[in-house]
C-alpha cells in the first residue's frame, strides 16, 4: 500500500465509521465483550487505547526506516509495551484518582490486535502527521464502539448510565453478563452494515 492520499479529516472519520475497529474490522473483540458492561469502563479503556495508539503510531512512523522487515512485529510489540508501561507508571504517579479507575485496563492494552494491525498496515508506510491522525481516528473509533456497547449494556442491564439511575428499574439483568456482549456486538455490527448498505444505495442513486 502506497502512502495515503487522504486528508487528515478523512483519516479520522475513516477510523470512527468506515473502518471502526469493533464493528467493521472486528478486532480486539475480547475487551469489547468483556469490559463494556458499563459506560464508564468503556470510556476509560477507550481513552487508554486512544493514547497508546497515537503514541505508538507516531513512534513507528518516525523510526520505520531503521526497522529490519523481518523483526517488525517484535519491534511493534516492544514499542506498544514501552508506551503502555510509561503511561501506566506516569498515571500512577501523577493522577492517582484516574489511575484507580483506569489502572487495570491500561495493562491489558499490550495484547490488543487493533494497535499492532494499525502499525503494520498504516504507520510503517506513512509519515508522522498522517500516522498521528490515523491513530486518533482508530483510537476514537474504538472509544466510540466501547461507549456504544457500554450504553446499550448498562442501560438494559442495570438501568443506569455512567452509574446514575435513569430508568429506576432493571429491564434485562442478562445484559450485564459477559454472554450479552456477543449479542450486543452482533446486533450493532448488523446495524452498522445495514446503514452502510443503505448509504451506498442512496449514493449510487444520486450519482445516476
Amino acid at each position: 500500500m502506497p502512502a495515503t492520499t487522504k486528508t487528515n479529516f478523512q483519516l479520522v472519520i475513516n477510523g470512527i465509521l468506515k473502518e471502526n475497529p469493533i464493528f467493521r474490522l472486528a478486532l480486539s473483540m475480547c475487551p469489547a465483550v468483556g469490559i463494556s458492561t458499563t459506560m464508564m469502563n468503556g470510556l476509560m479503556l477507550g481513552i487508554a487505547v486512544l493514547f497508546v495508539q497515537v503514541f505508538s503510531s507516531c513512534t513507528i512512523s518516525l523510526v520505520k526506516d531503521y526497522i529490519h522487515p523481518r523483526i517488525r512485529i517484535p519491534t511493534y510489540t516492544l514499542v506498544i509495551a514501552t508506551w503502555v508501561t510509561v503511561i501506566d507508571l506516569t498515571l500512577a504517579a501523577l493522577a492517582p484518582v484516574a489511575y484507580k479507575q483506569m489502572g487495570i485496563f491500561i495493562k491489558l492494552i499490550v495484547a490488543f490486535a487493533i494497535i499492532t494491525m494499525r502499525l503494520e498496515v498504516f504507520a510503517c508506510k506513512n509519515t508522522l502527521w498522517p500516522s498521528f491522525w490515523d491513530g486518533v481516528g482508530m483510537g476514537g473509533g474504538f472509544l466510540f464502539g466501547m461507549l456504544t456497547l457500554g450504553f446499550v449494556r448498562e442501560l438494559l442491564g442495570a438501568g443506569q448510565l455512567f452509574g446514575y439511575d435513569v430508568l429506576g428499574f432493571r429491564p434485562l439483568l442478562f445484559f450485564a453478563l459477559p454472554v450479552a456482549g456477543f449479542f450486543c456486538v452482533g446486533f450493532l455490527m448488523a446495524a452498522f452494515n445495514y446503514i452502510e448498505i443503505v448509504y451506498n444505495k442512496r449514493k449510487k442513486a444520486v450519482n445516476r
Binding site: H68, P74, T75, T85, L89
Partner: peptide, 24 residues
C-alpha cells in the same frame, strides 16, 4: 537490531520507573 531496540525500551521504562516510583 533487536538487542538495541530492547535496550532502548528498557532504558526508557527503567527511567520512568525510577522517576515515578516514590510518588507512586
Amino acid at each position: 537490531g533487536l538487542t538495541i531496540s530492547c535496550l532502548i525500551a528498557g532504558i526508557i521504562m527503567g527511567g520512568v520507573f525510577t522517576a515515578t516510583e516514590k510518588a507512586k
